[in-house]
Design a protein around this nucleic acid. Structure first.
Ligand SMILES: [Zn+2]
Ligand SMILES: [Zn+2]
Ligand SMILES: [Zn+2]
Ligand SMILES: [Zn+2]
Lengths: 167, 167
DNA sequence: TCATAACGTGTTATAACATAACACTATCAG
DNA sequence: CTGATAGTGTTATGTTATAACACGTTATGA
């Protein structure tokens, strides 16, 4: 059976943005970026990004594939993984390692090392800025090991789920 | 920590410990812990831990299963996953999300939120302390979200692999 | 113009990782 | 003795990800 990924909670960091705005902006930003970099924003790539940005929640590759199938695209695994890899390379999508899921970036304009806050009950995920989060990578460089990529995920229970549990 | 000599750099974090010591100590520590907590350090649990601490490198669950099989234990998947879950609960093993692999803790005595430095070429992994790493979780609490667990992984190329590439 | 290389999408098959569900034994408290 | 708990074992299945190859389109450029 399929795992459920759903959630309806309100905790500030999880919905402190206007998502209608977010959606339109995001599409525009990615279009501009691709144009500038001479990359193709093909119908498939656009569709995958739209699926992710639509509800702005983490989706597994196979959930994305189902959605692609419903919209008339091929739904064999490599289709999703290839596009996801591409979108991740360019910073428009991130992988949430703790959920084996993918999420549209909340701030693609800003070059960043994203950190994620994950509720283990409702599986809502917030992408937070390094500085905002209270996390700081004081040194990007450890013993001459050049860090190319960081994964930072904080798992816990959001206030909504926490309240719900104690009722 | 970092040495620079004649243009060469050496990264110490990957091998700055006496592993013979590490192995014996680790076994003793886990034995004491289990005794104190009235937990069973069964032959299977011991074997899994030994497999992980032997070379002290990340191993996939199925690699561990093979090793178990070679040593006369059952090698069906749940065997490994159950013991790994158990050892992780008690902080003697960590999962490296970026590799789908498991590694023996380098510092089980110390209550910690481990961070990992991972070479993407040789897949060596070093567990570093929050403070040493230059990473700090300034606030354990973000907008009333109580963080229960953190995942911090830094991927890059270690000096050895980096030197090898430029020869 | 005609090779040919690069890219994007598509397919089938399979690899790699992880869990569900149930069975059996040993231990131990009441 | 009885029932609960813990540990190991088994079979089967679910879930996530990649390999390998096919095909059309679009640049590149002899
Ligand atoms: Zn982002
Ligand atoms: Zn929640
Ligand atoms: Zn540790
Ligand atoms: Zn290396």
């Amino acid at each position: 059976m399929t795992k459920k990924r759903e959630g309806k909670t309100t905790s500030k960091i999880f919905d402190d943005h206007d998502h209608g705005m977010c959606f339109d902006d995001a599409i525009e930003q990615i279009e501009n970026y691709f144009l500038k970099k001479n990359l193709q924003f093909t119908p498939l790539r656009r569709k995958v990004f739209e699926i992710l940005i639509r509800d702005h929640k983490p989706l597994g590759a196979y959930e994305i594939l189902e959605a692609l199938g419903r919209d008339g695209f091929s739904s064999s695994p490599p289709i999703a993984y290839r596009v996801l890899d591409f979108l991740m390379e360019h910073g428009f999508v991130h992988k949430i390692q703790g959920l084996n899921a993918f999420i549209a970036c909340s701030n693609p304009n800003h070059s960043h090392s994203p950190a994620f806050v994950i509720c283990r009950k409702c599986e809502k995920v917030a992408e937070v800025d390094e500085k905002k989060s209270g996390i700081s990578f004081a040194s990007p460089n450890i013993d001459n090991f050049e860090v190319e990529k960081t994964t930072v995920e904080m798992t816990g229970v959001c206030t909504t789920c926490s309240r719900a549990a104690t009722i």
